[in-house]
Nucleic acid binder design. Sequence first.
DNA 1: TATATCGTCATTACTGTTCC
DNA 2: GGAACAGTAATGACGATATA
Length: 425
Amino acid sequence: MAHLFPTTSGPNDPPGPQLSPEQWHYALAQFLSQSQTIPPTQLPTPPASASPELVLDPMLAPQPQQSTESRLEALEQEITRLKAEKRATEDDSESAPEKKRRKRKQKPSPYVLKSSAGLCEEQIKVRKLLMQKVKNEGKRITGRLSDSDSDSDDGDDESDLPSSQATHTILRYNFAATVTHADNIKVFDRIADLVWTEQRDPTSSTYSLGYPNVSFTREDLLEFAETNFRSWKSKWKGEHYPEVRRKQEKAAQKDRQVLRRKELKANRLKAVSDYKQKYKRDPICILETDFMSDEISAPSADDEDTRDEHRRRLVKAAHLGPTQQRNDVWEVIRPGFQSVEMSKTKNDLDELVNKRRETQNKKTKRIRGRVPRVNFGNTHNRIPRSTLYPFMLSQPWYDEHVAGNEELEGTVMIFSKDPRGFGDS
DNA sequence: TATATCGTCATTACTGTTCC
DNA sequence: GGAACAGTAATGACGATATA
């Protein structure tokens, strides 16, 4: 180790080559990393028989008479000095050719439209058009013209393709591989070549983007093709791996739940002015998507019997007629954290929402209703991510599920004061 | 009167983006 | 590369209206 370890030169030492700060850093890091595991007193000394050629630099030769502490101290001083020197040199040579050269070395991004961030309206339009073209070409040249042929990619028989599709060579994606696989790169290249040839020159007869001033690169097209591939691969995996399918279905269900909560919030927002007029207070504070109830069509249990029983209870509670037995019914699952006051505020709002809906339905003579909702009084125990006002929180729920749990206590955020008209205010 | 077309609402499916 | 999220398109069901 010692021959890799640089030492400082003393005032009387012969001049030697200077080390750059980077070299010093590296050497120090090497030394420190090793000295952490080897007690300084046990630091090995170079073997007496070590030949001089093993020492990379005469200046790096060990000085065994120095203590480890003093060597470290000297090293740190040297690094500080070199850093200061380097800073001064850089400041002085702000316009030095070396610096300019380094700047020019930075490779420009090969993409123009890869990300929509920072693009102008026209660029975004062109980007959308190109994505669509890339997608269509991808479908065409891989024979994915309908859902029913989604399996065609992992097969090798082209004879069962419709004659209209067989007029050109069908390339295959390899969905079991990533975007870097040669098979897939071949398809991306083909797609990019086709769209690039058609759309690169605004004066050509095939150009159809409509914004000749907007430029793009072939790499953009490759990127779009890869994005399409990832989406199709995900679908393919869902079709071929039951575990993936289960995960995707679970994610889709979660997505639906979020959408329904947003819908609930949007409907309640429509009744805010009516509520303000009637109750002389603003209920906007409770209208966070996060605070909305879940509306579920089936419990998350995998057990078929449990789901069937739940379904029977919902149908019964919704008073569905004999011809409506297969209709959707959702169960309302309210947040467990919410107080009686918050719950009542929601009920009052919903009453006004329903009133509005009835008026609207009468006006348009609508018959079709929404999916009926049933409330069995069940609640969920998710911790709200948005900050609560004190009046919203159910103290018994907090005591049972949060109090005493340091981790959870840190995640429930509560304002210090209630908004006007709520709680004690 | 039958039916074709359009508009609206509720809901779902799909796609693109961002973050990790 | 995957998960989460957001925005948009698509779908289904229905009423209103125009037209033959």
